[in-house]
Nucleic acid binder design. Structure first.
Lengths: 137, 137
DNA sequence: GAATTATTGCGAACGACTTGCAGTAGCGGA
DNA sequence: TCCGCTACTGCAAGTCGTTCGCAATAATTC
């Protein structure tokens, strides 16, 4: 189902701003801050206003089409994914690598077993150095 | 070693702003945003300026006395602790429970084994419901 | 193609944080 | 105990990312 169809199905209008924001979000699966998304949208059409980009992101987030993370100094956005995909963020170049692991499930089970807390979402961020920013180089 | 001694040992001056910020940070082990810390400092002495609070937090962070997390919408601060202590944040009452687990070590090992990424710090936040905010009540 | 109204663009406002600078107050030496 | 040096503070202005109100615009319905 295309973004146009999703929007129409929910009685939202299909607009250029929303289409372009979606295009930028889906053309790669990396995290991007709102201003990076804005820059990429402007490369495609610089008549799109910043507020429209923010509003499109907020709408997509309401519709659970994107996930907003507060893992760095800024919020970052990406298309929705499961908890089991966690983030490896390079401290030097800020590249974010996705990493899938069953450890998150184990962690959820452990919390449920050992505490009276009921987890819903689990966010993990690992900071460190990616291969090309290794501290030895 | 008191905060006064730590500061003096590193050739920083012992000032009222730094003492009060430290007092607030250490009097409970919950996460607090900078503005919550500011409010609590102001309860003790409202002549302390906001910039001094920010500067104190930045200094403590440089000295590794506090840990800054970017896991929520705002940065939060708390006294330094190990990666193995993770955070259970209630979605209703925002209480933060600390939970120790070896799962984090396992995660670190897994990343090191399976990727070319070198982790330094691992932050985990679990959102959900605490016992007194259980959805069934 | 016209009417309806959701959405946009604009500019102003906001909140969190930072900065430059002049004045203040820790601290070390006399 | 006072003095001088300068790290630190308070203030006010500035920055940055984001939000808001509102009039204009354009996506949809008929």
């Amino acid at each position: 189902m295309s973004i146009d169809e999703v929007l129409r199905a929910k009685d939202f209008r299909v607009t250029r701003a929303r289409q372009l924001v979606w295009k930028v979000l889906t053309r790669s699966d990396t995290h991007r801050s709102a201003s990076e998304i804005l820059d990429e949208v402007h490369e495609l059409d610089d008549s799109i206003n910043a507020s429209s980009v923010y509003r499109a992101l907020a709408l997509f987030s309401d519709l659970d089409l994107v996930r907003e993370s507060h893992l760095g100094e800024l919020s970052t956005w990406e298309t929705a994914h499961e908890d089991e995909t966690i983030h490896l963020v390079c401290e030097k170049c800020h590249t974010t690598i996705h990493f899938s692991t069953s450890v998150v499930d184990r962690l959820r089970a452990e919390v449920q077993r050992d505490t009276s807390f009921t987890p819903t979402t689990i966010d993990v961020q690992i900071s460190g150095h990616c291969a090309s920013c290794s501290p030895t180089t």
